[in-house]
Design a protein around this nucleic acid. Sequence first.
DNA 1: TTGATTTAAAGTACCTTTAACTTTTAATTA
DNA 2: TAATTAAAAGTTAAAGGTACTTTAAATCAA
Lengths: 257, 257
Amino acid sequence: MDSENILERPFITITNLIWSFDHATNRVNILLVKRDNDPYNNYWALPETFMRAQESAEEAALRLVKEKIGMDLSGSHTEQLATFTNPLRTPGDRALSLGYMTFLPDKPQLKAGYGASDARWFTMGYTDKTYTFSDSDHIFQSTDCPVQRTYYSEFGGTNADPDKHLAFDHEWILKVACDRIRNKLDYQPNILLILGGKFTLKDARRVYSPFLKVRVEQIDNSNFKKSHQELFTDIGSSEVNGPGRPARLYKLAHLSA
Amino acid sequence: MDSENILERPFITITNLIWSFDHATNRVNILLVKRDNDPYNNYWALPETFMRAQESAEEAALRLVKEKIGMDLSGSHTEQLATFTNPLRTPGDRALSLGYMTFLPDKPQLKAGYGASDARWFTMGYTDKTYTFSDSDHIFQSTDCPVQRTYYSEFGGTNADPDKHLAFDHEWILKVACDRIRNKLDYQPNILLILGGKFTLKDARRVYSPFLKVRVEQIDNSNFKKSHQELFTDIGSSEVNGPGRPARLYKLAHLSA
DNA sequence: TTGATTTAAAGTACCTTTAACTTTTAATTA
DNA sequence: TAATTAAAAGTTAAAGGTACTTTAAATCAA
């Protein structure tokens, strides 16, 4: 079909967006790692790994979770996001990225030294135009432009600041991911898996909030319950820990994968 | 991160599902080609090409259309479907497949000899459980199982019949594609692009029909019009060519890509 | 203990969308 | 000219979504 000499056998990286929910702060979290090798050394990035022989991309995505945060997720929910193929998305050797998303049922403490100089949970928020991901030291934003700039570490662009931008096209990948999750809220809200085995209606609204870019209070509890009544199963009342009527607890009914 | 010796640099194939509409038979069509090289020599398959250096996968998908049916589609609508990575999906050397879909605004006559021993339009239909794709000599079906059998041409399985099954996992890819198109009918029916610049409401219902697995008559014209009124723009009355009131003609209003 | 406060559940009314069906219109055909 | 055909246009009831109000179950302070 094509002659051999023009064939491309690029590197294949698996990029996995790992989502969790922090029940202390009631916020959606995403895992970012600090790179300790070129390109983009010392930049924060979405966790990546190279695909190995004899494993499917889904298997590589789960192995990645094990390597980065020591969590065994065999049998847990990982889904394909998209594949990023722009030849300019990496400096030097071309690398395709197969994007996946994993929804962790709880937020594990991170142990240092899993193949990166640092790994942290970043809290999701939003502005008018972007989704934001912040920790105590940084705030990163999603971007609307697929490959928004040339490679800082190689060419030293004017915005070459590893405290303000993520590596590669990862700000764009975040945008694609958040838009996908938002679109699926109406018919297959797999993101709710980050709430684990029991949660209140308010918890669920707190997950929806940043994707819809509205405050939790703007999502009416009564209407939210009605439109999710066959998705949520009532499993009793929550323990009381403050003023106000205790919320009921729910679990997810089925959520087909 | 990972040591070099276990890295995989597989072949990358672009698999493009090319959809069109036959205004003579009023049926949805898909392009299949007859392979003239191993593996799966003489099997019918979805059109594929190898990705080249310096081109993105989208560009390769459009180049593929040009090569297979001589149609220049620069600027036309091609969208990503999914990426297929099961190590067992190809015999011998591993090959990832990046799936794309192209919606042709009209159905070109096929010229023989574009890098395959044959290329034909297959008519889409449906049964209870599968989507079907038939021409005068064959009927192929989508399948629910990702890699449903080992490789006929290599191992000589009992169903090793190139007149009954497609190459590789292409029956599974068809299932993923049809389900995706069906899901998007409600909010972004890009498949309607195959109707070209003007069409009747019945034409649009004939496109929906096989994906919904119902007869055209079961899709109520009046309700269909109401739920699509901001998507369709009335551009006048059709020419009369038989008994009955002439149908009005519409064009697509925007259809964001 | 009693009433104010807090938080969430439960209920209400209205409006829009959906779905099934009927009527009207505009063409052909006997 | 009336019957036939095919599609547009209209009707109605049920379902679903949205905004809002009321009730319930807890804490807290006088």
